[in-house]
Amino acid sequence: MMTMPAVLLALSLAAGPELPTTPFAASDGKAYVLKDTLAASRFTVLVFFAHTCPIMRAHDARVIALAQKYAEKGVRVLLVDSEADATAERAAKDAAERHYPFPILVDADGALAHALGVRFATTAVVLEAGGKVRYRGGIDADKQRLRPESPFYLADALDAVLAGGSPKESETKALGCVLRFK
């Protein structure tokens, strides 16, 4: 059951959230202005990351594979670290250790997570080039034990929007850790 704040948030996201305009530091040393970053790809997937979350770690390989598979279709994957202790240095270390082929944006004040109504790590948000949210929820229906038969919500959503349609489920449950905000 959706609570009233959740309903209001869903309506606001459908209309297009007010995304932060300030540049984000990132693990690759660059600064990302979200509007420009979104405009450069057909769709952008933001996956919310938590440094110590075992559920995020369990999904690393699945996210990397998804990023590689959909890159040629105009989809860009970015991780976002919205936890209070996020830094570019830690993001760089994590990206290197975990062999991420995409950067981790540093959102230490949680502005991006709050704008998108994200509370849990592994939450994936699919955004159009113009910033409209097309999907928000889990990467899949798993926590740590990844099951091949598990619904792959994020991939299904990407397939749908790339085909010009809408995801069958535009909101699903993300089963990751609580993001620790400031």
Partner: peptide
Amino acid sequence: AQACCTGASALAPARLTLH
């Protein structure tokens, strides 16, 4: 694990984890 689903202390003997 982590801030993942922290819970302890509950009145109920079977507290639901985070999700």
